[in-house]
Design a protein around this nucleic acid. Structure first.
Length: 640
DNA sequence: TTTAGGG
DNA sequence: CCCTAAA
């Protein structure tokens, strides 16, 4: 039989962001709200949303609904099991019982009394538990009977004559992590629970299956995948998918790798991160070891005991200020979880609270927080003006998937999951839409933007947008830098830079839909009869949509992103020159404090560097200068 | 953390 | 801009 291409166009997943479940009506209800301070910035809001989503994944309870009766073309997300993960441990002693885990998947199935076998045991440190559990959930994928079934929705499939099918409104359950072991390229993009795919016999098998059919191509470096979920266009998301051409499913060394990164577990996180950071940034083709390290770091963070948790946390604190800042912000969306001193695990709240932007968002229903504490916090919230937002679901940007007819359902599922995982994991950011218009200024407060308690928030929406262009496609802040500078020169501490776009806003700021790369047909030439290709297509015209969990937690959170280039404006240069004239060189901290105190994106190192280049610029002929010309008069002042 | 300098 | 040795 001739293999016929099937093009599955996913017009969008809807990912319920809240558990439908049942376990605790109170928690569930609370969970549906994101309560925001009116004064917080739009960015904070976005961050909170992202964090919230992630948390939902972490804490989602389950419904008894099963997928077995779903439309056969529907894609259903089921929650995977994490049976070895205790929800909570006794806070007192430091022994094995101290290990607290960050997620409380399906708490009802776990021993809440800290039976941590399997985790504490080095020989059975949770990985092996993972392995079996992976198998387990893999099976559950097939028979549709996971232990913790999630409510599943069905997608509508439209089959056209050409044999392509379009799936609409596939619904993901709030926990996508079960379709673990998704790999793009070499990278196991385990979602959520980050299972170790290398140890998964089932996976191995299916991987072999993929390869043997010559359909190993997933979203690799194939040139036909221009917009391939995050990898191509986003240097900052060095998803390794571009590395291996033919065998993206290159899980060809299951055992050795599994071992290798189990043993590497003890490398310091910071070290790992550094390696990753530089490697990821400098070259798109990174070593597999790095990937493993990366992944390892994730596993470590998620599965290891409290000691490791603390260590991780500590090491985060040790990273340089700049990085830390980035990390914090980013981790909002990726949401590493931290352990509080009270022994409860919680996610990103701490992170947020350390965010310099002030008021920290509060997430209701944090399972790691005692009800009392929750109440207290509720009380606190009531004192402020808070906007209550309810996000029903997010829609994931469109996906296209190509897969041979002869592929198994299992591989189809896997492929879909890969696609979903890829965009969820690496390529999305959240956008805010208010009354049909995207809110771009992340520094505006909600109330400034018009998001206030008193307004009807119907017109408020969130979008998930491909992240691939986010770094390059926006302009630089064009503040009235002249006045800004002058104020700064006087060492004013006014919030001059308040309206400046911070580098972080690049992560969240929406691109115009029109700016998004055109949809490109990936299925054209390379006669992909046998191959599965997938590409995400940015959904244009997203309305008030929905949100999603950015899974893939640690993976990205640990990859420090290079800051966006922000050329100094003439005004800034003038401010710099002025400050240096006043303070002299070698006092960059003072220069910063004096002239750029509110320009958060200008560090003293930046200023020093800028001065360096200014001096250099002054020494070269105007013909050799590039970029926005600096007035000669300013340059002349640098040679003193 | 800051400074200084190379990359 | 990044990275990092030194202070």
């Amino acid at each position: 039989m001739v293999l016929q291409k099937l093009d599955y166009g996913f017009s969008g997943y809807e990912v319920p962001t809240t558990p439908r479940a049942t376990q605790s009506a109170r928690r569930s209800a609370a969970h549906q709200e994101i309560v925001k301070d009116n004064q917080m910035s739009a960015f904070d809001l976005l961050a909170t949303v992202a964090g919230k989503l992630l948390q939902d994944k972490e804490t989602s309870t389950t419904s008894s609904d099963t997928s077995s009766e779903k439309d056969q073309y529907g894609f259903v997300m089921e929650e995977s099991l994490t049976p070895n993960k205790p929800l909570k441990a006794e806070p007192s002693d430091e022994g094995s019982c101290d290990q607290r885990f960050f997620s409380d998947h399906s708490s009802q199935t776990y021993d809440q009394n800290c039976t941590l076998k399997g985790i504490a045991d080095p020989e059975n440190d949770g990985h092996s538990g993972m392995a079996s559990e992976v198998t387990n959930s893999s099976c559950s994928l097939l028979n549709g009977k996971s232990h913790n079934q999630m409510e599943n929705l069905v997608s509508i499939v439209e089959l056209d004559s050409s044999g392509s099918a379009e799936f609409r409104d596939c619904k993901l359950d709030s926990d996508i992590c079960n379709v673990k072991d998704v790999q793009i390229g070499n990278v196991p993009i385990g979602m959520g629970t980050e299972k170790c795919s290398f140890e998964d016999p089932l996976d191995e098998k299916s991987l072999a299956l993929f390869s043997s059919g010559g359909t190993a191509k997933l979203s690799g470096s194939d040139d036909n995948i221009p917009y391939s979920t995050l990898s191509k266009d986003c240097d900052n998301v060095p998803l390794d998918s571009r590395d291996d051409d033919e065998n993206c499913f290159s899980c060809t060394h299951p055992s050795t790798k599994a071992k290798s990164f189990r043993t590497m577990t003890h490398i310091g996180n910071r070290r790992i991160r550094k390696i990753l950071a530089s490697k990821n940034w400098k070259t798109s083709s990174e070593s597999k070891d790095d990937k493993l390290l990366d992944r390892d770091g994730n596993l470590k963070l998620i599965y290891h005991n409290r000691k490791n948790c603390y260590r991780h946390q500590r090491s985060e604190m040790n990273i340089p200020f700049k990085k830390r800042k980035l990390f914090y912000h980013r981790s909002v969306s990726i949401s590493d979880e931290f352990i509080r001193s009270d022994g409860n695990c919680h996610s990103f709240e701490k992170v947020m609270s350390q965010d310099a932007s002030g008021s920290s968002p509060r997430i209701h229903g944090d399972p790691g927080i005692s009800s009392l504490e929750a109440r207290q916090r509720n009380g606190l919230q009531c004192r402020d003006s808070h906007v209550k937002l309810r996000i029903k679901s997010f829609r994931v940007p469109e996906l296209f998937i190509e897969i041979p007819e002869t592929a198994t359902i299992g591989s189809l599922k896997r492929t879909v999951m890969e696609a979903v995982t890829a965009i969820l994991g690496g390529g999305l950011h959240v956008g805010v839409i208010l009354q049909g218009k995207k809110v771009r200024d992340d520094n505006k407060t909600l109330i400034q933007t018009g998001i206030s308690r008193d307004n009807h928030l119907d017109a408020l929406g969130f979008t998930l947008e491909p992240n691939s262009k986010s770094i390059t496609s926006h302009g630089y802040p064009s503040t009235s830098s002249q006045s800004l500078v002058q104020q700064n020169i006087q060492c004013s501490s006014d919030t001059v830079a308040e309206h400046q776009v911070t580098s972080l806003s690049n992560l969240v700021e929406s691109d115009d839909d029109s700016e998004l790369p055109p949809t490109i047909n990936t299925f054209g030439d390379k006669s992909m009869t046998d191959s599965k290709a997938l590409v995400t297509v940015p959904e244009t015209g997203m309305e008030a949509v929905t949100a999603i969990a950015m899974h893939e937690k640690t993976k990205r959170s640990e990859v420090v992103q290079r800051r966006i280039r922000r050329p100094f404006s003439v005004a800034e240069v003038e401010a710099l020159v002025q400050a240096v004239e006043k303070l002299g060189t070698g006092r960059w901290r003072d220069v910063k404090l004096c002239a750029f105190d509110n320009a958060e994106h200008r560090t003293y190192v930046d200023l020093k560097d800028k001065w360096k280049t200014l001096v250099h610029t002054a020494t070269i002929s105007p013909q050799q200068r590039r970029g926005q010309p600096v007035p000669q008069q300013l340059l002349d002042r640098t040679d003193r």
